[in-house]
Amino acid sequence: MNAVNVILKRELASYFATPVAYIFIIIFLMLAGVFTFYLGQFFERGQADLSAFFGFIPWLFIVLVPAVAMRLWSEERRSGTIELLMTLPITTFQVVIGKFLAAWFFVGLALALTFPLWVTVNYLGEPDNGVILAGYLGSWFMSGGFLAIGSCLSATTKNQIVAFILTLVVCFVLVVAGFPIVQDVFSGWAPLWLVDGVSNISFLAHFNAISRGVIDLRDLVYFSVLIAAFLYATALVIDMKKAD
């Protein structure tokens, strides 16, 4: 566990060693504000909740989370530091988990910094804070899913931009899988189990359930399994591709 901790600390420190982390957080907070207040019509809705905010979170994450994940492994491979890292007495899994946790905590921090929204809604009315907490929890778990996918795709390439685009596309597909537009493609001909299957892999279905305040174990398990599977895949990809 100590090794994971050492990796985690180094990674987190490296986010803040350059302006990238600050820029990311500022953009995230600005977009969150714009989406919530203008597009989400926070005031016009006249309801004391944050569903205007959480409704846009998946779309915000599609663009911003791949930007956090893209450097996880691509940069190590491009600069050759992967050789330094993988010849230390640390297992591949420890490194994979340490790096993932650092990115996850970083996104968690960005999420936490949206607390003025929560303060505002509590000032204006009496929201159900349990639902809001569930929304934050769901958002954080969903970002974990995005990050695990990004970690795996970042391990496949030395190019951060390629990693970014690949992750963005995969995450987009996973989010929209539950939308009518995708569902309609299948519903005409495919058997029911396939239609259900497709809508079940959608991030949105699971996220929406949690963010409505219904913390179903199955939704948390969905994200946990997704994260575990893609981190395992990351370790496999690293072992296979670290030479090139």
Binding site: V6, K9, T18, G80, E83, L84, T87, P89
Partner: peptide, 26 residues
């Protein structure tokens, strides 16, 4: 081990990168 080209984390300071290696070695 000194890998070819002596790769290192360019955004770290000398002190912190040595600390990292030392901690990773326990």
């Amino acid at each position: 081990y000194l890998p070819e080209g002596a790769p290192s984390y360019s955004d770290m300071t000398v002190q912190s990168s040595l600390e990292f290696i030392g901690q990773a070695r326990g």
